[in-house]
Design a protein around this nucleic acid. Structure first.
Lengths: 260, 260
DNA sequence: TTATTTTGTTAGATTACTCTAACAGAAATA
DNA sequence: TATTTCTGTTAGAGTAATCTAACAAAATAA
């Protein structure tokens, strides 16, 4: 219920942030404005203001304008910054639609710890200092948005103007299909090569890059495929299992086996 | 209160996830195990099980073992996957300590939307397919963790084995200090060049890469510095304002002015 | 079999948040 | 001045989640 640092709830943080936003454009903040901005009833705002005043985060007296205290201002700004960092990460890096990114950020902002926030900020600084990274994300990852993941196998070659790919072929062709493995084989998932729907289904089930899969029983037309995914048994229709590509079983990937 | 998709609360999602984890290692799930795993009182578990059973997400009868239904299993797995994606992003990409990453992921997992989840999964796939990106993050961004941000100005040169940096000098030296600007100048923040404490203070206040700053009043020994940061007035002690570096005011950065 | 311990449930209280409906104060209008 | 409208507060209810303390059922030990 309580957020990571402030000692106040996410709801109260939202109120503070909203007051800050209103004061940024209107010189005074009234109950009505807050209710409207947050899309809650004015009757919900009054008790929230009382709670905030009790905690010395706002100055508030009945039927009067609302002001942030030093402490309240600090939390409001920090919350807003967390929101911005998350929303920018989701939209600028991951390529999520602005509105959706705002939405996600709105609820996650209350739980981003100080250290995560600091690192996320550092990531943006690094990105700005490192044009190569920006190119990779825009050209490579960004492209995958439109062209679909089918092209991902050729990404290293086509999108990366930064490096000469001499031994490209063997690097890329090493990816295997999960269904082609021998029973008992253990691998790391490389990617899901499927359309939106199947892809989402697999990801929801935990088939994400880096997850460990062990083939238990290869399926056929009637029997489903059985694998152990990160230690959990899972069944899959063969048609869906076909879309899972795994990294080769070489030494480089072997070191990822133990996470401790 | 409710999470993005399931129509159930974060708390109930946690219960489902926990049941899934317990069933992955113990063949049966009891109230006691769940209470222990989630660090809540057993008296809190019983009513939660009733709520879950009502929603057809578990099979539950008084004093009996608890089983997940098809639907419950799906939500449990999806929640766990979201957790893994977030926690891996925080630890593997941002370089947050494992425990802290787990913590943050625990609370944020309930709010990551389906599309963000999909894109985050795609990011890991892209990372695995693009060794250059991995190198940049490990060598460049990863290094910043230890050496501090002072070195960031030279990152492009020193860490990037991927590109020849002929015109390095002018690229890097273009960064200006915020305090050296003329009053009225508008720029984008590039990075914060300060120790941990000052850095955190500035970031908490919203001084993150990409934010727009307009210099209102240059400070001196007595008067504080005043800037407009993303539309909000802020005061800073001169000593702290010194640490803010901004991008040059060239055409390339000018295009970021409007976000719409 | 009886006693003890473990385990699970219930009752009752608390906190945080929301709502609707009724009401009160202030401002604007007639 | 009187009335209407806007704005804010209160009262009262509901939901979701948690807790402690008391109790009940089941399993284990004596």
């Amino acid at each position: 219920m309580f957020d990571s640092k402030s000692g106040i709830t996410g709801s109260l943080e939202d109120y503070l942030e909203t007051i800050y936003i209103i004061l940024g454009r209107s010189s005074v903040a009234r109950v009505r404005d807050i209710a409207e901005e947050l899309d809650v009833s004015p009757a919900s705002v009054t008790p929230a203001m009382k709670r905030l005043a009790e905690k010395q985060l706002i100055r508030y007296s009945k039927r009067n304008y609302i002001e942030l205290t030093e402490k309240g201002l600090f939390i409001a700004r920090r919350t807003m910054t967390r929101h911005n960092l998350l929303s920018r990460f989701l939209s600028e890096i991951l390529g999520i639609e602005r509105e959706q990114a705002e939405n996600d950020a709105c609820s996650m902002e209350h739980f981003l710890s100080a250290s995560s926030m600091e690192r996320l900020a550092a990531f943006f600084e690094f990105l700005a200092a490192c044009p190569e990274l920006q190119i990779l994300i825009d050209t490579g990852f960004g492209n995958c948005l439109e062209v679909g993941t089918e092209h991902l196998s050729r990404c290293s070659r086509s999108i990366c103007p930064l490096m000469a790919h001499d031994n490209d072929e063997n690097e890329m062709l090493e990816l295997e299909r999960l269904i082609d493995l021998e029973p008992g084989s253990s691998r790391r998932i490389a990617r899901i090569n499927a359309g939106k729907k199947t892809r989402r289904q697999l990801i929801d089930s935990g088939f994400i890059q880096g997850a460990n899969v062990i083939l238990i029983r290869p399926g056929d037309k009637n029997l489903p495929f059985i694998v152990k995914l990160d230690g959990y048994d899972q069944q899959l229709p063969v048609l869906i299992a076909e879309c899972v590509l795994v990294h080769p079983d070489c030494k480089e990937n072997g070191e990822q086996q133990n996470e401790e």
